[in-house]
Amino acid sequence: MDDYKFLFKVVLVGNAGVGKTCLVRRFTQGLFPPGQGATIGVDFMIKTVEVEGEKVKLQIWDTAGQERFRSITQSYYRSAHALILVYDISCQPTFDCLPDWLREIEEYASSKVLRILVGNKIDRDDREIPTHVGEDFAARHNMYFLETSAKEADNVEKLFMQIAEDLMEQARSKDLPRYDTSTANIDSRTSTIGDSSCCGKLI
């Protein structure tokens, strides 16, 4: 049996070919598989990490970027704890589509979802979107921002670990008072805060 204190769902979205699958593979398997081909529907990976001595299970949903899979991928937004919106820093159109993606997120995801903007492929030297442009966009839309390279393993670990830490923080701060009030008396000692079964409804 796998034991973990927290379970978080992380969903990656963004145009086709920006490197969502590569980011996930790099993080979960330490690989950079070239010539992957487009993802079909949704892919699903699990990695358990340790944050402040606690086991955190990350359920990572890697969605297809292509339009025709939209009705599949959209159905995963709602239960996501974190949404990673990825674009390719060497491809302007993938950046131009970000507002459309945000609209989708607005429509389908929970309003409290943690949102992260990621500019991928910083190993490439044909950059089209300067870092500060991505930063500005993220700041304007209240998102975290990070530039990564799945190929060189730059910032990939950091990206997911940051998410795990933030979500854990969130879960703890939101959950504690709630449990305190609902079981105000004697039982409060026995109700554990983040046991695996209740994480789904934390956020």
């Binding site: 079909i40 529907g41 949704v42 009705s71 599949i72 159905s75 995963y76 709602r78 239960s79």
Partner: peptide
């Protein structure tokens, strides 16, 4: 994938 999507929708 279809089944999962419908389950997700039902859940929502």
């Amino acid at each position: 994938d279809g089944i999962c999507a419908i389950i997700n929708n039902a859940c929502r």
